[in-house]
Design a protein around this nucleic acid. Structure first.
Lengths: 193, 193, 193, 193
DNA sequence: CAGTAATCGAGACGGTACGTCGTGTCTTATG
DNA sequence: CATAAGACACGACGTACCGTCTCGATTACTG
């Protein structure tokens, strides 16, 4: 049975990895260049020299493709490691903001797409939001263990405030500067002591 | 000069207020019932018994109409008045969350629309975001004058965190409960003392 | 009673002749310049500095206005007078063709409009076709009385052939040259002897 | 090279002949029933159970579709064959008139459409006018060879008069009776002897 | 000389058709 | 099976005119 399944999975012509890569690359380029909305599935497939069905065979729609396209490039979420909670949070936010200088517009569009499509919202949360949130959570938890924070501090509320603040500014088109990262970090840390 | 302006403004057949109201009412109803995306401009106009042009004469597109439609109903943002900062903020947030139980989905769609249309983002900020933010800002400023807060408290960062937190949960589809309002309020107040 | 009628007819503000003239002039100009189809009622009224209703008060629609506009200028249908039948017919046709060099395109559009509007077809026939046809008929009848034609000649068929021939070439976009006028005239005369 | 052309021509999903036929049939029916003007592109497509784009993929607009629709049914233009010139012409005209009893209104609308669209006028001439004119031309040429006509007869002028006469009556809404066919035929023949 | 009534420019009104666009699915022939 | 190409049904879009209507403001005759 397992063999049959394997056979079934590998029957016929295998999928072309070149097509997959071309689609991801083209999607990223076009969206960066013209904006999410102005780019259609037809454009992406055409530019990638690929049939439209080939795209639908790999992703359910434009949003999912573009999410993967920008995920690949933004994959590197590093734990800022040592230092005080405040320093670590500040570095974390500044890294985040730096990435968003490039990809901010695309990410905003993806959040937008997620608002009318619960399934895609789920994908977006799992692939993009949570991995980044986990890093910040790690920083706080480490600080809590080290006794840097008050014992009755509400870590969850603080994390929500932390991420909310930057989403808020991103979605409202307000600048995400290193200075703001520092102030936000300071404000959050203060609420935990 | 004044006369000329008046004349220019009142020339030709005046706009029909009934049509404006019908459009707002129908837009609100349909979007609440079927969701933003599922409602088309043609549906709204038809249901309102109005030509499509009549709609375009008043708003540039669906987003602007729907924004106005939900603005009217959500216009009542009350200053919660007396009490400690924490109590006032909690009440403010709980009111906000209550309203969003009904209108949350529509508001989410409007934020989404704003992500690809800078002009509409501006409208949205001015008509929806700022008026509400001003209320919270008022609460904090009153508290600061009353000496309830630390002198070096970063009010702006706190406000961003406050609003960011609830936008964050709204857009990510997470529940906005009264409990969360209290915890968030507490966390913010803590960062200001 | 007559007085009453007169009174009823002359009550209220009288129609503005300037508007009528402006509409005719502008209609003629615009249609000559851009073609019948490309010119809308709104354009004509706007260019004439006149309200749209003012136009509808005078004519039922674009076709009727344009017909009148071109009628005024093409009013001069002269009986070519003396000479043999052939000479008279030739001169008649050559005059006709000359006028159509300028107004041909507009006239073609009017015939076109008449095809889907029986009432306008009637107007067109009475105001444009018959007056011109009568001139040709006059030529043939004079010749018949003078004994230039066979007694059993079918004048009606000849007239239909004569006018049909030039409408045919006009509507099919073929040139209406003086040479063709002469050949057509000769052919018709031949059929009458 | 030929192979490449073949490949290019047969690439992708082929056009659906059923759709083409349905569109032609429905166009013919609707125009016959309600008149050209009252029939819209959307009606035709809907009635044919076909997307609007499918229509535009095949024809540039309503006129071209309707022309093809009526061409198919009016394709049978038969050479009346034997008999004297007069008899042959009479039979030719009577056949023509018979067909126009049914299709006259549609044909008139097509001539009308052609007046504002040179490209369509060309199509109309090539697909509709010339094939029919060629039959009449054949009759006259055969007669000329058989010595039935005068040597200096102007065949071209006669043909123009012949067709012009019936277009003239058709477009002016005058009846096309068998009697008129006979009289016209006689008049034309007379001009050639 | 006030009242009455039709006209005027302006422009909004409900409709209807237009031609274009994008979606997700399908159907070819060719790997 | 997958692939490139492209047709398919569907439906929204924003625009253009249509012929009618509703304003406030003239402009003449009437009583």
């Amino acid at each position: 049975m397992g063999a049959e399944k394997e056979a079934a999975a590998s029957m016929g012509r295998p999928r072309d990895d070149m097509a997959t890569e071309a689609l991801l690359r083209v999607a990223r380029d076009l969206v960066t260049r013209h904006g999410y909305r102005a780019v259609s599935i037809q454009m992406i497939a055409a530019e990638a020299g690929v049939g439209r069905q080939t795209l639908y065979r790999r992703w359910p729609g434009k949003a999912d493709l573009v999410l993967d396209a920008f995920l690949a490039s933004a994959a590197a979420v590093e734990d800022p490691g040592l230092g005080s909670v405040g320093e670590a949070l500040t570095r974390y936010l500044q890294d985040l903001f730096k990435n968003l200088e490039r990809d901010g517009p695309a990410i905003r569009s993806l959040v937008a797409s997620a608002q009318e499509d619960p399934q895609f919202l789920d994908s977006f949360r799992q692939k993009f939001v949570w991995p980044r949130a986990a890093v910040a959570a790690g920083i706080l938890q480490r600080a809590a263990k080290a006794g840097e924070l008050a014992e009755d501090a509400d870590l969850e509320a603080a994390l929500t405030a932390l991420h909310g603040a930057f989403w808020y500014r991103l979605l409202l088109g307000e600048p995400l500067t290193p200075e703001f990262a520092a102030r936000l970090s300071a404000s959050i840390v203060r609420s935990l002591r």
